[in-house]
Amino acid sequence: MAEKREDEVYVLGAFDGLQVVEGEYYPQICTLLKCKSTDLKTCGYLVATAETSSDTFSLSGMFATSYVFPDVLLTGVQLVPGEFQVLSDGCLINQNGTSKPVLSVTLFGRWYEKDPPHPQQGFPGCGY
């Protein structure tokens, strides 16, 4: 980190399993995120601003699916198209620094084959 503030904490997290909030699906997640305060119990809560900056960084993970989606949020909850690059090996990199401090950098894998089966539902009005 180019300018690490003592009053900000970032954590690295990973998840691999069935998610049952707002539906049932099987994600694999690798994430770097800013905690709301220096108390680690606040990690994962909504955060809108950050001050810590970095010159370069990368995030990678080993996923059992080829459906891996990058997600980067900067302070002010701003998406950053064009500031990050996904390499062919799935590594998410930034080599030139970001326009604002980072709130989170995530690789979200969706393992569709492990999603629970859902009953076939037709489309209303389509004769199914």
Rank of each mutant, 00 (worst) to 15 (best):
M1N: 07
E3V: 12
R5K: 15
E6I: 04
D7N: 14
E8W: 11
Y10I: 11
Y10S: 08
V11I: 15
A14W: 06
A14K: 14
F15E: 01
F15N: 05
D16E: 12
D16P: 10
L18T: 10
Q19S: 13
V21S: 14
E24S: 15
E24C: 11
Y26Q: 07
Y26D: 04
I29H: 07
K34F: 00
C35N: 08
K36I: 00
S37G: 08
L40K: 13
K41Y: 09
T42W: 05
C43I: 09
Y45M: 13
Y45T: 14
T49D: 12
T49L: 04
A50Q: 07
A50G: 14
T52S: 13
S53M: 06
S54N: 04
T56E: 06
S58K: 12
L59C: 09
S60T: 15
G61M: 02
A64N: 11
A64P: 00
T65Y: 11
V68P: 12
V68H: 14
P70M: 12
V72N: 08
T75P: 02
G76Y: 07
V77M: 13
Q78K: 11
Q78S: 09
Q78R: 12
P81M: 07
E83H: 01
S88T: 09
D89A: 07
C91I: 08
L92Q: 05
N94R: 08
S99C: 03
P101F: 06
V102S: 04
S104Q: 14
T106G: 04
G109N: 09
R110E: 09
E113G: 02
P116Q: 04
P117Y: 03
P117D: 10
H118L: 10
H118V: 13
F123M: 08
P124W: 02
G125Q: 05
C126V: 01
Y128Q: 09
